[in-house]
Amino acid sequence: MGFVTWLAKLDRRWIFLAMGLLVLGPLIRPLSLPLTVSRPVQGFVNAIDAVPHGSTVLMSCDYDPASIPEMVPMTRTAFRHLLSRDCRVVITCLWAGGSGLIDSVLTEGAREFPSKSYGQDWVNLGYKSGNEAVMVVMGQGIINAFPRDFRGNACETLPIMRSVRNYSSFPLLVNISAGYPGTKEWVQQVQARFHLPMVAGVTAVSAPEYYPYLQAGQLQGLLGGMAGAAEYETLVKAPGLATRGMDAQSLAHIFIALMILLGNLAALPQRSSGGKS
């Protein structure tokens, strides 16, 4: 009973310390655990691979810096994947706090493709307030909702935008989203209404919410959290931040599972004596 009593009185700062070390350790010295690719991630990659070369793809990055570890690897890999297939990419953002971060990620990603130029092969239209209303107005015309890009250029002067009218100009929507407005709203307002094929990358905590859309075929693929991003990186043979983070997440998940079991073990004496916890 000594161990159980010790557990019951355990200071939670020890739990914080253990969690910190378990996350830090694999980031410094990776364990290189093998990744298995799940069906939703395979669907995401297949949908992008099915886009004809030279197409213009709409990519909406709806998140802010709080979700960097999960969202940025997805954004970076999807952007590279599209550019490597000679697709042109039109990027939008519906989160006020996200446009600066997203522009940095895209600019850095585009540097790997010296032959691709801004305005010709990709454009960042930046942030627009209005949530679902923006999605609907984009259906009337992308330039109606975004007359200027993130850099202040008039969109009608950009070569990439000359072939873009509304959602019918895109064969695919790639949405990377951390919440509202995000994947659910894009499915409801755009996929269902304008029949634009769609794939999504979402945070792990919100991923279960989108499985009904995945099963119904409204989403052709889904990246769930850092695990989804890591599987995506594995599939396109470009291991990055998410792959490195998966070892840390593995140990963190084991630790939390252990905490649930130990917490219940520590509560056993109280339960057997009928006391309140």
Binding site: L33, P34, L35, T36, A204, G225, L251, H253, I254, A257
Partner: peptide, 10 residues
């Protein structure tokens, strides 16, 4: 929780 990360399969 364990099945979502590589360690689950290991």
């Amino acid at each position: 929780m364990l099945g979502r990360v590589p360690v689950g399969d290991v």
